[in-house]
Amino acid sequence: MARSLRTRRGGPRLRAVALTGIDGSGKTTQAHRLAEALTAAGRPATYHRNAGGRRWLGRLAHRLGRPDAQRLVGRNAMLAVESVLRWLAIALALLSCLVTGRTAVMDRYSACQYASIRAHGGQRWERLARAGYRIFPAPQVTFLLAVDPAEAYRRIERRGTDHESMRWLTAAATAYRTLPEYPTFVVVDAGGSPDEVSRRIRAHLTEWLPTDDDRPASAGPPPGGADPPPAGGGTPERIDPLPAQARP
């Protein structure tokens, strides 16, 4: 487990944070939640889904009577397409972050591509991918949402939008643990409820997200609780947070 990132306030701006992990680990749910939490805390953030197109290729394969994307286009072609599409998505996300000054919350990052390549047994492609992805700076925080492959499989089956085999999920989980970047990841137990996982993620971002201990006694309950009534009675004034933006 990587160390918590608890530090004093007033540190550097949070430019980018990435959420990685196998399919079914809850990356998309937690990335959306984190972007909203940062924005509500006064640190405008944008969600970016850095997909590689593998799910789309899998759906196309099924329509054409093939079991999966690899059987449709071949392993090498699939890894090449996935690497290029994810590279483009990350580049656009980082450019948007640079132009707007918003925090980029990355749903997948370069480590996801390296793990995908390893899980498919394409080590030669990993060297090429690393050469191309080297221009991207490492996010200030990279979370690895760790979940048992069997639980991930059950989640994927429940959502019913795609399918992954236990063999693939197990290989992907192993691939993440063997990456040279693994010691730098903040490993979060993602086996609990979405609320539990969100709390674990926030506990590692206290430099940028307030905690209950940081709130003055007069500030009232934390976000999500009831607002204290105004001194003169009547309806309390509502202050809406800045909206979190999303990019596909």
Rank of each mutant, 00 (worst) to 15 (best):
P194N: 13
A2P: 12
P180T: 08
S96M: 07
V188R: 00
S4H: 08
P194K: 11
W168R: 00
G65Y: 10
A172H: 02
S165V: 09
R63T: 11
G160D: 11
R102F: 12
R159E: 15
L242C: 05
T20D: 12
D107H: 03
A171V: 04
F136H: 03
R200H: 07
T39F: 10
G122P: 03
R3D: 13
L179H: 05
L14H: 10
P12V: 14
V84L: 11
Y109P: 00
T29H: 08
R108Y: 07
A35D: 04
D189Y: 12
T103D: 10
D162Y: 04
T29G: 10
A69P: 01
L94K: 01
V99G: 02
H204D: 08
R43W: 10
S198P: 02
F136S: 00
P223A: 04
A203Q: 05
G225L: 07
R215A: 10
G58V: 05
L98T: 10
V81H: 08
R33V: 10
G26S: 14
N50D: 08
I239C: 08
F185V: 07
L64G: 04
G220R: 04
E237L: 12
D148I: 02
R158S: 10
T211S: 11
R130H: 06
A173P: 03
G53T: 08
R158K: 10
E82W: 06
A69E: 13
P137W: 10
G160T: 04
D23N: 15
A35I: 06
S116E: 04
A150S: 08
R200V: 01
G122F: 07
R118T: 08
A226F: 11
A37L: 09
D240T: 13
D212L: 03
P216C: 03
V84P: 01
H48G: 02
P12R: 14
L95W: 12
